[in-house]
Amino acid sequence: MAKIKFKLNDEFRTIDVQPNEVLLDVLRDKLGVKSPKCGCDRGDCGACAVMINGKSVRSCLVLAVEVDVQEVRTLEGISKPKLTKLQKAFIEFNSFQCGYCAPGVIISATELLEHNPKPDLEEIKEALSGNLCRCTGYKPIFDAILDVTHKEKKK
């Protein structure tokens, strides 16, 4: 058992973990952070995405011990203190149906807009290529992101 201390959504957390515990399980089952979901459990689907030190990662492929002294941000952190413009656009465009992929999609899209505030459709598709959505066919997701970036352009 190892004691790890890390920043989770701007709060310091200290917790005991076994070397073989996966970050996704520790976040969900030990720390009650439920936005990352288990989909494929092998890094293909993107449902478990969280950010480590500002970069999106697959929490199903990260050992919990690895985040010792690192900074982890989940959708819960992104949504504080209020929903972002991107999240509001996803609601407006009814971008998600079942919602299982939504946290991962929002994390990938947030990361994209941080680096590239005005992506074209191809760049959006590339950035979201690791997030599988089985409900929507992606169209309302892309539309929402394009709408946010389009509005930004007008200003």
């Binding site: 890094g43 999106s56 990662v57 697959r58 990938s108 990361e111 950035a127 690791g130």
Partner: peptide, 9 residues
């Protein structure tokens, strides 16, 4: 290689 979330790691 794969997707952004994999390439970051």
């Amino acid at each position: 290689v794969a997707s952004v979330g994999i390439r970051n790691r």
